[in-house]
């Protein structure tokens, strides 16, 4: 065990405590606002990680589920008169059912075709958001949304706790999956599908599971996000969100849990921190990305893991012999 492994428990406990106390130590309401983004984006990024980093499927459909969840919850509250929590649960359930249907068909394809289908799916959702005006109200969107304020804190303190009350259990669930045999099996399938099949593993069932869980959690995260924004319109399906989730997964390290959680938090803060110079912001952002991908192509977690592999390599005389095997 490395030092980092031993520190994980205390670090996580400290992190959760800091997160729960955040509204009381945050320098400004604006910081709490950024923390809400961080909580929800991290869940969406970790869901994408389950599908992409673990199951090996680059899925742009996550953006579609983010949008479907947002619209279902908004329509549930505004048009169906649902209380807010059942509306969020409905958002997750609809996303799960849609993912099961889409996944059942799309997971028969190879990985490359799957990417294309996932993009087409999200474009279809975008078209519905824009053009199915009787239901979605088109470009005008559905305004007047809001999160409950159980504690009466300085805004957006209450919204932050709503986001956290979802994000922490959601991340907990994703951690259980990632650390379980199911998570290991997904990694095995991503690395070598033929080998996995020769070991009796049916890749499609595992991938469908990952796809459905990720869709449900992403949908609820999207729903909470638009209630925090107070409006849902087709901009919720902007590629910006997908790009953000993807960057978090790539920088954190595909298939790593803590890497992506840390990247999710940092990459929610970084764009805000770079606001000191609006002109240079995108350039700095791009530069950081290029540097990270150049020097840590498997993300931060991948970089750590490679260091560990190095230790094993040095400890193994057999692999040091130059002509050990042909």
């Amino acid at each position: 065990m490395g030092a980092l492994d031993r520190l994980t428990g205390p670090l996580v406990a400290a992190g959760i405590a800091a997160a729960i106390a955040l509204p009381f130590w945050a320098p400004s309401p604006y910081a709490v606002y950024v923390a809400i983004n961080a909580a929800l984006f991290t869940v969406a990024a970790m869901s994408l990680n389950l599908v992409y980093g673990f199951a090996g499927l680059l899925s742009f459909a996550q953006l579609g589920f983010w949008g479907i969840g947002a619209y279902v919850a908004a329509i549930g509250v505004k048009d169906l008169g649902l209380p807010i929590i059942p509306a969020f649960l409905l958002a997750g359930a609809v996303c799960a059912v849609v993912a099961a249907g889409v996944g059942h068909a799309a997971l028969r394809l190879n990985r490359h075709s799957f990417v294309v289908v996932s993009i087409a799916f999200t474009l279809l959702v975008l078209t519905l958001a824009r053009d199915w005006t009787e239901v979605t109200r088109g470009a005008l969107g559905i305004p007047g949304l809001g999160l409950p304020r159980p504690f009466g804190l300085t805004p957006p303190g209450d919204s932050y706790y709503v986001a956290l009350a979802f994000s922490l259990p959601a991340l907990g669930l994703l951690l259980v999956i990632a650390r379980s045999r199911v998570g290991r099996t997904l990694l095995a399938i991503r690395q070598d599908e033929s080998l996995a099949r020769s070991h009796g593993i049916a890749p499609r069932a595992y991938r469908l599971f990952a796809f459905v869980v990720a869709a449900a959690l992403t949908g609820i995260a999207g729903a909470i996000f638009v209630f925090h924004l107070t409006i849902v319109d087709p901009l919720i399906l902007d590629i910006y969100y997908m790009q953000t989730f993807l960057i978090m997964v790539i920088l954190g390290g595909m298939g790593s849990f803590w890497g992506v959680v840390v990247a999710g938090i940092l990459m929610s803060i970084l764009p805000e921190a770079l606001r000191f110079s609006n002109d240079l912001r995108m350039i700095l952002y791009g530069l950081l990305l290029i540097l990270a991908v150049t020097f840590m192509p498997y993300g931060f977690a991948g970089w750590l893991k490679a260091r560990r592999g190095e230790v094993w390599r040095r400890a193994t005389p057999a692999t040091r012999l130059p002509a050990g095997d042909a």
């Binding site: 045999r181 290991r184 099996t185 990694l187 095995a188 690395q191 070598d192 020769s198 009796g200």
Partner: peptide
């Protein structure tokens, strides 16, 4: 009926023990 492959295949990022556990988990 289990098989190995001509081009050696292992799960590179999984621990060696995990490689073995994965091979038996479905049964």
């Amino acid at each position: 009926l289990m098989r190995t492959f001509q081009q050696v295949r292992v799960y590179d990022t999984l621990a060696i023990e995990e490689n073995l556990l994965t091979a038996a988990q479905e049964t």
